[in-house]
């Protein structure tokens, strides 16, 4: 499940605050969003584990996979798909980085 682009690009963070291999929980337009820098590409997901809705930014990001700290569900950071279990996925938001390094997210 992915959010559609609605054109409401809201400022979320500056790219130089989000190093490669790092993630951060932010709030964008009242929505809790997880930003991840995956090898230089920024991804934005709803900051809730699909299992029991715990915040994902308390988990562990090893640069490729994200592990929810609550119950160890594992996700592919690049695609948001579940690795274990593999029948789930993170909700993603459209995300882009402006030329001045502003990360913008479209939460709809």
């Amino acid at each position: 499940m992915s959010g559609a682009v609605t054109g409401q690009w809201q400022e979320a963070m500056q790219l130089d605050e989000l190093w490669e291999g790092e993630m951060a929980g932010v709030e964008v337009g009242g929505e809790k969003v997880l930003l991840m820098n995956v090898d230089g590409d920024v991804r934005a997901y709803r900051n809730r584990c699909p299992h029991q809705a715990w915040a994902l930014d308390e988990g562990d990001f090893d640069g490729e996979t994200l592990t929810c700290a609550r119950h160890l569900w594992v996700f592919d950071a690049r695609s948001g798909t579940g690795v274990n279990p593999d029948n789930c996925r993170l909700t993603s938001f459209p995300c882009k980085v402006d030329e001045d390094g502003t990360i913008r997210v479209d939460v709809g």
């Binding site: 308390e58 988990g59 562990d60 592990t67 700290a69 609550r70 160890l72």
Partner: peptide, 9 residues
Amino acid sequence: RPGDVLAVR
């Protein structure tokens, strides 16, 4: 401190 448990695991 669930992060500690993840690391130890």
